[in-house]
């Protein structure tokens, strides 16, 4: 199983801070597409972390990994 965490406004779109799903074997890109459909999210330019380490779109998720989605922010 995997814990998937959502930061900032993504959390509000999903309605929860984290969800638990088995997404092992999927790439980050595949997971993004799946979540985009399920929750109507725009995740194209959102950063992903696997176990608190930056993950690129082609990284494959392992069982037990925690995945976090963090939107880059431009305001200042």
């Amino acid at each position: 199983m995997n814990k998937i965490m959502f930061f900032a406004h993504l959390r509000d779109s999903v309605g929860e801070e984290s969800v638990t799903k088995d997404v092992s074997g999927k790439t980050i890109a595949e997971l993004k597409q799946m979540l985009a459909e399920e929750y109507e999210l725009k995740l194209d330019s959102v950063m992903a972390a696997v176990n608190e380490e930056f993950a690129s779109d082609d990284e494959v998720i392992q069982d037990g990994d925690t995945v976090a989605f963090i939107p880059p922010v431009s305001g200042g």
């Binding site: 959390r11 950063m47 972390a49 608190e52 380490e53 930056f54 976090a68 963090i70």
Partner: peptide, 21 residues
């Protein structure tokens, strides 16, 4: 050696390591 992100209203805080990038 990480990108720090936080949300003060939603009480979130995380350090994302970036060295491998």
């Amino acid at each position: 050696n990480a990108m720090v992100s936080f949300d003060l209203w939603r009480n979130q805080y995380t350090n994302m390591k970036v060295s491998k990038v």
